[in-house]
Deep mutational scan, measured.
Amino acid sequence: MTEYKLVVVGAGGVGKSALTIQLIQNHFVDEYDPTIEDSYRKQVVIDGETCLLDILDTAGQEEYSAMRDQYMRTGEGFLCVFAINNTKSFEDIHHYREQIKRVKDSEDVPMVLVGNKCDLPSRTVDTKQAQDLARSYGIPFIETSAKTRQGVDDAFYTLVREIRKHKEKMSKDGKKKKKKSKTKCVIM
């Protein structure tokens, strides 16, 4: 069974824990209790493949930012979460993405942009803004509501699919490099 290491990042209060708990335990946590770091595991079937999701729910508070490099190193894919009623959390996505790329030393890291709290009427981040940002990053965008469960499975499952595509691409690139290195030079 394939294991996928997913990391949920975003500013404090955007609903990272609520999304994760909704996926794992099928219930909505409405009281806000700032996370330092929590880890969850769940076995699911995605596109006919049974897999184990190892999900790291991270601290959004700035005082825990020193811990970010460590979990970013171990993560295979990242859910970059903002709240649709919090423009600052949307603007912060850029910083999370840049930090992930720096730590992973790669421009090509599996990510999904997630606009959470889409059940709320007080939207300050337009869907088109988020779609445009995701398009500019070359990553999928999904709106979710941890409260109603809308888009929750889709967000995590899409990230797994992005990781699969990335692994497939990397193995193809690896095979191309191996083929090239088999060419021999004969000096007579």
Rank of each mutant, 00 (worst) to 15 (best):
Y32A: 05
I55T: 11
L53I: 15
I55M: 11
L53C: 08
V8R: 00
N26K: 13
V8T: 05
E3Q: 09
D33M: 05
G60P: 08
L6E: 01
D38F: 00
C51W: 13
S39V: 15
L56K: 04
E37R: 01
G13T: 10
R41M: 08
Q22I: 03
V14N: 12
Q25W: 06
T2L: 09
V44R: 12
P34Y: 04
G15W: 00
Y40M: 02
L56M: 14
L19F: 12
S39R: 05
F28A: 03
D57Q: 00
G13E: 14
K16R: 02
G13H: 11
Y40W: 05
T20N: 10
V7S: 08
V8L: 09
A18S: 10
K16P: 00
I24M: 15
Y32G: 03
E63D: 14
E49I: 05
A59T: 10
Y40G: 00
V7Y: 08
I21V: 14
V29M: 14
L56D: 15
L19W: 04
I36G: 01
G12R: 07
D33G: 04
G60T: 04
D54M: 03
E31A: 08
G12L: 06
A59I: 02
T35Y: 01
E63K: 09
E62N: 10
L19S: 15
R41N: 07
N26V: 04
V9Q: 04
L56F: 08
T58E: 04
Q43Y: 06
I21A: 10
G12F: 07
D47T: 06
T35W: 01
D30G: 11
V45K: 13
T50L: 09
P34D: 02
G48N: 11
G12T: 09
T50N: 13
A18E: 02
C51T: 09
L56R: 05
Y40C: 01
T20W: 00
V14E: 13
A11Q: 08
A59G: 13
A59H: 04
I36W: 06
P34S: 06
Q25L: 09
P34F: 05
H27F: 15
T20E: 05
G13R: 09
D38C: 01
D54S: 06
V45D: 15
D47R: 07
A18M: 06
L52M: 15
A59Y: 03
T2S: 14
K5L: 02
F28T: 03
G12W: 06
E3W: 03
V8P: 01
V29P: 11
L52G: 15
A18C: 09
V29F: 13
Y40K: 00
V44Q: 12
L6A: 04
Y64S: 15
G13Y: 09
E37I: 04
D54N: 07
D38S: 01
Y64D: 15
G48K: 12
E49S: 11
L53K: 05
E62W: 07
F28L: 05
E62R: 07
S39E: 06
K5T: 05
D30H: 10
Q25G: 15
N26Q: 13
V8D: 01
T58I: 07
T58M: 07
E62K: 08
G60D: 04
A59D: 06
D47Q: 08
F28Y: 11
L53G: 07
D30P: 12
I36N: 05
T50F: 06
V14W: 03
V14G: 12
G15L: 00
I55E: 00
Y40Q: 00
T20R: 01
E37L: 03
A11V: 11
V45M: 14
I36Y: 09
Y4G: 07
L56Q: 13
L56A: 13
V44I: 15
D30Q: 11
Q43N: 12
E49V: 10
T50G: 10
G60H: 06
V7G: 05
D57G: 00
V44C: 12
L53Q: 06
D57A: 01
D38A: 01
T35H: 00
G60I: 02
V45C: 14
V44F: 15
L52W: 15
S17G: 02
Y4T: 14
D57Y: 00
F28S: 03
Q61L: 10
Y4A: 08
V44N: 13
D33W: 04
V14F: 09
A18Y: 02
V44W: 07
A11D: 11
A18K: 06
V8A: 05
N26F: 05
V9M: 12
L6M: 08
S17T: 07
L56T: 14
L23C: 12
T50W: 06
L19Y: 06
G60R: 04
N26W: 06
V14R: 05
E62S: 10
E31T: 07
T35E: 01
E3R: 06
A59S: 13
I24E: 07
H27Q: 15
I21S: 09
S39K: 06
L6G: 02
L6H: 02
Q43F: 05
I46C: 13
V9N: 03
Y32V: 06
R41D: 03
D47E: 09
T20V: 09
Q61A: 13
Y40E: 00
A11L: 15
V45W: 07
C51I: 13
I55D: 01
I55P: 01
E37M: 04
E37Q: 03
Y32Q: 05
L19D: 13
T2A: 13
D30R: 12
I46M: 11
V29H: 10
A18D: 06
A18R: 03
L6V: 11
D54A: 03
